[in-house]
Amino acid sequence: MTGDVTIQKQRKSAVADAEPLASLDEVIVLLKRQSRRLEGRDRLASDDDPLWACLD
């Protein structure tokens, strides 16, 4: 997911029009939101698993 954000930021640096810039900002926000949600879900899954709890 981090790589996708990086790619979108690079695309953003090559764009001058306001409309595409706004669209790329929306994509970046969406990717970051999804990343946080997945990290939270992974954290919850590892908390419920005794093996992961032991390794943590």
Rank of each mutant, 00 (worst) to 15 (best):
Q34T: 02
V27L: 10
E26K: 05
L38W: 00
A16K: 10
K9Y: 02
D48N: 11
W52A: 09
L31M: 08
L55Y: 09
S23D: 11
D47Y: 13
A14F: 14
W52S: 11
D48V: 10
I28S: 03
V5Y: 00
C54E: 12
A18D: 05
Q10N: 10
K32P: 04
D25N: 01
R36G: 04
R37M: 06
S46P: 01
L31I: 05
D56L: 12
L24D: 01
E19C: 07
R11N: 09
A18T: 06
D25Q: 03
G40N: 03
L44G: 06
I28M: 01
L24Q: 00
T6M: 15
E39Q: 02
D56E: 14
V15M: 13
L51D: 06
D25C: 04
L31G: 03
C54T: 12
A53Y: 05
R41M: 15
T2M: 09
T2K: 05
E39S: 06
E19I: 09
R33C: 12
D4A: 13
D25G: 04
D56Q: 11
A16R: 08
A18R: 03
V15G: 08
D25K: 02
D4T: 10
A18H: 03
S35E: 05
A22T: 03
L30R: 05
R43C: 13
K32M: 15
V5P: 03
V15D: 15
L51C: 05
D56K: 13
R43P: 06
D56G: 12
L51A: 07
R41S: 09
A18L: 05
D56W: 09
L38P: 00
T6V: 14
R11C: 09
V5M: 03
D47R: 09
